[in-house]
Simulated scan of single mutants.
Amino acid sequence: MEILIVDDHPALRSGMAHCLKPVLPHACFHEAASMAESRTALSRVPQMTLVLLDLNISDSRGVDTVKQFRAMCEELGVFPRIVVVSGSEDVRLMCDILKEHATGFIPKGVSERILQSAVRLTLDGGVYIPEAMLQNIEVSAGLLTAPRPDSTHIGKLTEMERLVAAYCVQGLTYKHIAHQISAMRGRTISDLTVKTHVKNLSFKLGIQNEGKAAVVAQISRLNLLFPAPAEQLHDINSRR
């Protein structure tokens, strides 16, 4: 397992790696202080599993950091989970990040236990969003006014819906999800088809907002797990 920590403070990078090593003893940790150093790390280790990304680094600031990082990963053909680790508690910023670019948001300053649990949850196919922030996201995403999720519906997610959910959890855009599934299945599907599956997921998860950000937030709220597709894991392993 390969994990990249991107932060322009060396002490924070080393401290995060030190905290995670006891619960991820077989992980190999890599560090980068900038977008340029991140590109070098991803080029050297294309099987990167997870990226813990600060929003404000030496050559990029704010949500643009996530956008640029995601674009760089797609350019290099590398598809790690990207989780933001930030001191910001701006809910609007979090919603923007969840909508298109990353899944998971870990505030700086959380306890070692929470950081360890958040990373483990992410690697297991879940999404970590702090409870206090999730409550605010629920308001903007329309979750609080939605009907209670029907466990029967959740249990009857189709194979395609689970696949789409797994890619949503990875933070991929509709277009990229369509590309991944088309390549995996050997037949072309459109981003509109992906949006239809996300709409079905919204209904089955008991939310009124049909957007991907709301689906990801609800997955976090319900503590659901959608591991990376086996085909993708095989592709990752074959490159090692």
Rank of each mutant, 00 (worst) to 15 (best):
I154T: 09
Q135F: 07
A178L: 07
R187F: 11
T173K: 04
G142S: 10
K195T: 08
I219W: 01
R120H: 09
V164L: 05
L121Y: 03
Q232W: 05
G171E: 08
E210D: 11
L123E: 04
E131Y: 08
K212N: 04
S140L: 15
S140N: 08
S111F: 00
N209K: 10
S182C: 08
G125K: 04
V119A: 07
Y174V: 00
F203I: 14
V164Q: 07
T188D: 09
D124T: 04
Y167E: 13
K204E: 11
V169C: 02
G126W: 06
L233C: 12
S202F: 04
L134P: 00
I129Y: 01
V194T: 01
G171C: 09
Y167D: 10
L225R: 15
A146V: 03
Q232H: 08
L163W: 05
Q116R: 13
L157P: 07
A228L: 14
A213W: 06
S220Q: 06
N136F: 08
K195M: 14
T158E: 13
K199A: 15
N200W: 08
I219A: 03
E112W: 04
V119I: 02
N200S: 15
P147M: 03
A165V: 02
R113N: 08
I154R: 09
A214M: 07
S111Q: 09
Y174E: 10
Q116S: 05
Y128G: 03
R148K: 13
L121G: 00
G125R: 06
L224P: 06
T122P: 01
T193N: 08
A166D: 05
Y174C: 06
P229C: 06
L144A: 02
P227T: 07
Q116G: 08
M160N: 11
K175V: 11
A183S: 14
G186C: 09
R113M: 07
T122E: 12
A213V: 01
V194M: 10
P130Q: 09
D191I: 00
L134F: 02
L134K: 02
L225N: 07
I207Q: 14
L201F: 04
L224G: 03
Q208N: 15
L225P: 01
I189M: 12
T193L: 09
K195F: 01
D124H: 10
I177S: 06
V194I: 14
I177E: 05
I207E: 06
P227I: 04
M184P: 00
L222E: 11
Q170W: 02
T173E: 08
R113K: 14
T122V: 01
I181V: 13
